[in-house]
């Protein structure tokens, strides 16, 4: 079973995403910002990361740059999940190595569709 790290400073969004992911039979763990997520990845690298953009301490883009610079056998799939929906932001995320991009608000259909696109379900 795949493991997804949910990174979002909103407890409500984390809870909602975790419920949706569990419904799709994906195990979950969580972090409140990019710094917490990095610590998590250093001890146990997840298969998938659902990543918010705007967070305190270390934001989503900062985290992604550091993650992609890590020397690991297998890089996780990263899905941005954010209210940032401008074309330039999305293009920048792809350029930094995001595998998929979810524009909030989202529902289980959208999440499942994006997970299928990265072969996670």
């Amino acid at each position: 079973m795949s493991v997804c790290l949910v990174v979002d400073d909103s407890r409500v969004i984390r809870k909602l995403a975790i419920r949706m992911l569990n419904d799709l039979e994906i195990e979950t763990c969580e972090a409140r910002n990019g710094a917490e997520a990095l610590k998590h990845c250093m001890t146990a690298m997840p298969d998938i990361i659902l990543l918010d953009w705007n967070m305190p301490i270390l934001d989503g883009m900062g985290f992604l740059k550091r993650l992609r610079a890590m020397k690991v056998p297998v890089q996780p799939k990263v899905l941005f999940c954010t209210t940032e929906s401008e074309f330039t932001r999305i293009s920048a995320a792809i350029a930094e190595g995001a595998d998929e991009y979810i524009m909030k608000p989202f529902d289980e259909d959208v999440l499942a569709s994006k997970l299928r696109l990265i072969d996670a379900i």
Binding site: S85, I94, D107, L117
Partner: peptide, 24 residues
């Protein structure tokens, strides 16, 4: 709509073949 372009469409294709319009 934002929901429609997120169902089945890889984001790389979305940025390649779609233009952003007002009102999401």
């Amino acid at each position: 709509s934002q929901f429609e372009v997120q169902r089945g469409l890889p984001v790389q294709m979305m940025v390649k073949y779609f233009d952003e319009r007002p009102n999401q």
